[in-house]
Simulated scan of single mutants.
Amino acid sequence: MKRIALFPGSFDPFTKGHEDIVLRGLRLFDEVIIGIGRNPRKERYFPLEQMIHLIEEAFRDYPAVRVISYDDLTASVAREAGARFLLRGLRNTTDFEYENGISQVNRYIYDEVETVFLITSPHLAPISSSIIRELHRYGQQVDEFLPYKLEAHPLGH
């Protein structure tokens, strides 16, 4: 049976830290699906379609990686996609506390799913999507944190 993992997140934006988790996940799984969840309580900074395109381009040489977007419970999406694993990255203990609760709920919804946590590579641990959004919003160069190039923010200083 094919070992498929769903790597869920808002990916606003998708960072080199996220890329690292996907590439390391490919050593464990036959396929990694990057699932961009839509959160109705959060307005995206980077448009969803733009992020899908940028992530697909970043992984164009990896046929075992695909990108989807969804507006449903992550566990339900995993079941529908045939993914028996949820792939998550942990930067610190705060991430673990947050992710642990989510993994329990996902297992309740879809009892055949296992959450696999990978510890973020040390040199990438300080990177977060929220920091990158803030830097970009104020016109700072962020390409070194991303596996693709971004246009400068039009409101940058």
Rank of each mutant, 00 (worst) to 15 (best):
I102C: 04
E56H: 01
A75Y: 08
N106L: 07
D111S: 15
G82P: 07
A64F: 04
N39T: 07
R91E: 02
V67W: 10
E151H: 06
P63F: 08
E49A: 15
Y70D: 00
P8I: 05
V67C: 06
E56R: 15
P147D: 03
R24A: 01
E43R: 15
R44Q: 11
P147R: 01
K2Y: 05
I131H: 10
F117C: 03
I34A: 02
A58R: 03
S121T: 13
V22Q: 03
I68D: 06
G101Q: 13
G9T: 01
R66G: 06
E43V: 15
N100Y: 15
S130V: 04
L86G: 04
F85R: 08
G37L: 09
Y148A: 09
R79F: 05
F59S: 02
L73W: 02
S128L: 06
P126M: 09
F11T: 06
R24Q: 07
D111H: 14
A75G: 10
Q50M: 14
V22H: 02
R41E: 13
E151C: 00
T93N: 09
V32A: 10
D95M: 01
D12K: 12
I52F: 03
N39Q: 06
V105A: 11
S130H: 11
E134M: 12
M51E: 14
R79A: 12
T93S: 14
E112V: 01
Y70F: 15
I102D: 01
